[in-house]
Design a binder for these strands. Structure first.
Lengths: 162, 162
DNA sequence: GTTGAAATGCAAGTTTGTTTCGTTTGGAAC
DNA sequence: GTTCCAAACGAAACAAACTTGCATTTCAAC
């Protein structure tokens, strides 16, 4: 590792492991990447401080905790005035059932990923988030029949950046 | 905790913590939920065995590892014959840049979440995944301007202790 | 060749995770 | 009301992992 804010091959190899299982002992990581455990620990700490590693979390099966339904929603707004967009962002982000929210270009303005227990819950949510929101022009719903691949893993193979 | 396959308020409180930070010491979790460390450890282990906790992972900032662009893609297929759908699922899931893939109802058949380094990379990916795939009728692209809320946290709804 | 910043490995020290074991709790049957 | 049993608990011992200090190595710049 040369200068302070770049990621070298060791860092990326460590990230690849941690993105799959961050309970892997540092000793095992060290063996996998040919580094000592302290070296691994220092690199992990540095990447956490740099914000490369944003969080360490447990991934929970939604169905096992009573949220078997995953839904995508495309939301189109009436006005894209900055303050209204910011209000929408805050409003969506504050809802626990809204797992992900992106502000996007294209034929929609927002895309939401929502998890709910029942379609009745979803309907109640649409009422609260969309029908009672004057700035929502329309929205389209896509119900997930199969969560084919779900994760937040990012390829770390080649490039480094930021 | 009564019978073995249900989640009680303690389990849910533990899950809520682990979904935010799974490096929280079990002693600290125990204090937060009014349980001893061994009790916390046993519950975590049980939930991992039950599949409630699917994985423990580090969340990486895509921009910091050279994937600053997040894109949503709605994919519509020509034929929904089971074998073709399965082939599409496998094909999409195998691509590292495809972070999430859902098979959905509605005006599209698949929704993908993709992370790439550049739009040129995305164009190359569309060529490979869509234009060269005879079963893809059309697709629509939504480029994320703001990752307002990104996570896989599921509401667990209960609390214990204090 | 020398210098100095940065990273490394080793080994000690500290924290955390895990197991053991005896006790308590909550039902069900009597 | 008592007994019995199984499940879960807490305290403490134990094992494993993380963290720190330090001497050494590496490598680029001089």
């Amino acid at each position: 590792m040369s200068v302070s804010s770049e990621l070298d091959a060791f860092d990326r190899a460590i990230l690849a492991i941690l993105q799959k299982d961050n309970s892997t002992p540092q000793r095992a990581i060290g063996e996998a990447v040919n580094l000592s455990a302290p070296a691994v620990q220092r690199r992990i700490k540095r990447m956490e401080e740099m914000g490369v590693i944003r969080a360490n979390v447990a991934l929970v099966d939604p169905a096992k905790v009573g949220h078997p339904i995953t839904i995508f929603v495309e939301v189109e707004v009436e006005s894209e005035r900055a303050e209204l967009i910011d209000a929408a962002k805050c409003g969506f982000a504050a809802v626990p059932e809204v797992q992900q929210c992106y502000y996007v270009t294209g034929e929609a303005d927002f895309i939401l990923v929502v998890t709910v227990a029942t379609m009745a819950d979803y309907e109640a949510l649409t009422r609260r988030l969309f029908f009672e929101n004057n700035n929502v022009k329309r929205f389209r719903t896509f119900v997930a029949m199969d969560r084919v691949k779900v994760g937040l893993e990012v390829p770390v193979g080649e490039r480094a950046g930021g």
